[in-house]
Amino acid sequence: MLEHLELFFKSIFIDNMVFAVFLGMCSYLAVSKKVSTAVGLGAAVIFVLAVTVPLNWLLDQYLLRDGALVWLGPEYADYNLSFLSFILFIATIATMVQLVEIVVEKFSPSLYNSLGIFLPLIAVNCAILGGSLFMQAREIPSLGLAFNYGVSSGIGWFLAILAIAAIREKIRYSNVPAPLRGLGITFIITGLMGIGFQSFGGMLTGDNEPPEEVETSTAKTIEEKEIKKEIEDEEKAVSYNEVINE
């Protein structure tokens, strides 16, 4: 339970999609002129992230990662298909978005009317693919946590676009220097908001990210050890043969 809470708040505030890793900036900048459209797109992002992240988690777990195919039988234990993850993730996302669009249109026309226009846009929103790729890179351990990660990073994105849309509605009445109007000032405001969000960094004191350097180095040393072992074994075998020959 605690880890769910931690992941939830961490993905909303500390690793905020927009302010910490700049995902989904294109639609963030393009669709944030009015609060009402921003809310529609934000809701659609939460929805699609909540569907695609757990789905891609299953794909990663049972198809892509090193040794994931072991459920097919022990002879598949050495397969590592992770180089296929980009193409599988994006295909999952594109088809899921289409599917969600069809299902929502059929069963809830009112929801479709509010989300509908944004759904096709979302297939190419980097926040969605980014959610799945970060899920893979951070090695989220369980399906429940993956779902949690999808929902909470969606909420983080939603908050960000809601805030910038509200600010942009107000800034229309301010006297911004002409060359900065529109895009320029939006960038700078987002930067300032990002600095604000940085202060959430101290909220959780747990270890933020596992020390990757150490892992790779241990992997290396293990490899080196194995190689050494093999060499030693070979040497032993050779000397053994020599003994026999003598």
Binding site: F19, A20, V21, F22, P177, A178, P179, L180, R181, G182, L183, G184, I185, F187, I188, T190, G191, L192, M193, G194, I195, F197, Q198
Partner: peptide, 25 residues
């Protein structure tokens, strides 16, 4: 830190648009 990138890009836009007035929104 990440937010600085946004501000740098904002400044690039500022410089570019004050040199070429036709681009002002």
């Amino acid at each position: 830190i990440p937010p600085a990138a946004l501000i740098v890009v904002g400044i690039i836009i500022w410089v570019q648009r004050s040199r070429n007035k036709a681009l002002i929104e």
